[in-house]
Simulated assay, not measured.
Amino acid sequence: MSTSNDLPSPVSRRLQLEHAQAVAEQADRHAVTLESILAVLRSSRLDDRASRTMALDLASAALIGLRSTTDEQRGTMLEPVDGAFARLRSDLRPLARFGGLDVQFVEPPTAGRALPGEVAHAARAIVRSAVLALVDQEEAKRVRIQWDCDGLNLLIGIRDDGRGEITGHDDSLRPIAERVAALDGDLEVSSTTGWGTSLEIRLPLDPPAEAEPLEDSVGFSARERDVLRLVASGARNRAIADQLGITDNTVKFHVSNLLRKAGVRTRGELTAIAAGSARGHH
C-alpha cells in the first residue's frame, strides 16, 4: 500500500523538471550540431579536406558549448529579445551556409521586454526544430523567421516555400506542439499546396496565474462553504446532512444557493468547477 511518503516532494519534482529540461536542451543542441555537420559533409561546394576541417570546427564548438554553464542559469536570467534572436541566428548559420537553405531573419524590436531565460531557450529550440521539420517534410529551400514581443508574449512567425502539405497534426510537429503547450502557448499551422506553410507561435512571458478557489471568489456563507467542500468530495446529500448535523432539506437548500451563486445549473458542474479551482489553488 502506498503512502504519502512514496510521493515525490515538491523539491524532488522541481529537480526532476530541471533535469528533464537540461536533457531536452542537450538533445536540441546535439540535433543542430549533427544536422550542421551532415550539411557540411554533403555540401558540393567544399572539397573533402575543407569539409572535414569545417566538420571538426563545428564539433569542437559544440563540445565547448556543452561545457558552458551559462544555460544552466537560464531559469533565473533574462535575455534581451534581440540578443536571444542573435543566438538563434548563430544556431542556424551552419544549416543556412552549408545546407543550401536560404534563411531570412526579421529582427525583433531592440527595445522590447527582456525574455525569461526559459522562454528564450524554448523559443530557440522550437524554431530550430520547426526549421528542420520544414526542410525535411516540406523540401523547403527558403524559410523566413520573425520574432516580435507585445509585452506579454513572444510572437514567432515561421514561413517556408515548400510543398504546403504539412498540418498541425503532422508527427514532425508534435514535439513542437507539446513544447508550446507546456509553456501555455499557442501554435497555429496553415498550409497552401504549392505555396508553403506558415507557423504562428505565441509564448507567454509570465507563468499562468493560479486560479482563485471558487469558495474565495464567490460570496458564500460559512455553512455554504462547508457544504461546497463536501459536494466537491463527492458526498451525497444524506452523508452531508449526517456530517454537518443538519437535515436533508437544509442541504438541498444550501446546494440550491450554491448553484445560483456559482452560475451553474447542475450538481456535476458545481463539483467540477469546485474541484478544478481547488487543484489550481494547491
Rank of each mutant, 00 (worst) to 15 (best):
L7N: 07
V11C: 02
Q137C: 10
R67A: 07
G117C: 09
R67C: 02
A86P: 01
E107C: 03
S2A: 15
A84D: 09
A62T: 09
A50L: 13
V40P: 01
L173C: 03
R42Y: 14
L46T: 11
R163C: 06
A222H: 10
A22P: 03
A125Q: 10
D171S: 15
D150G: 04
V251Y: 06
T110M: 10
I273N: 07
W195A: 11
A232I: 11
L78T: 06
E212V: 14
T76R: 12
R229V: 09
L244A: 05
V135C: 06
V251G: 05
S90H: 12
A62C: 08
R113E: 14
L7M: 10
S51C: 05
S44M: 03
E139W: 08
R113Q: 13
E118F: 04
I156V: 13
L115A: 06
G194D: 07
A209Y: 03
G245F: 05
S9P: 00
G83C: 05
R128M: 07
A122N: 02
N237P: 00
R225P: 03
D242E: 12
S256I: 01
N257P: 00
A39C: 05
V255S: 05
L92Q: 00
R93P: 00
A84I: 08
L66C: 04
I126F: 06
V103L: 12
Q26A: 08
V264K: 13
R124K: 09
E215I: 15
A39N: 08
V264P: 14
A275V: 13
T250G: 03
R279G: 03
T193V: 07
N249L: 05
D136W: 09
G99V: 01
K252C: 00
E178V: 04
A96T: 02
R267I: 15
T3S: 15
M1Y: 14
T3H: 13
A133K: 10
D48G: 08
G219M: 13
P8C: 10
L183C: 01
T110H: 11
V119L: 04
A209M: 01
I176Y: 05
P80F: 14
V11Y: 11
Q21S: 07
A274E: 13
V131M: 07
F105N: 01
A50V: 06
G83A: 13
I273H: 08
L199S: 02
R174G: 02
D248P: 00
W195M: 08
L259T: 04
V264G: 13
M54G: 03
A125V: 02
A140F: 11
S60W: 04
T266S: 15
V81A: 12
E178R: 05
T110V: 14
D136M: 09
A241Y: 12
G157A: 08
L203W: 03
Q137M: 12
D226Q: 14
T266A: 09
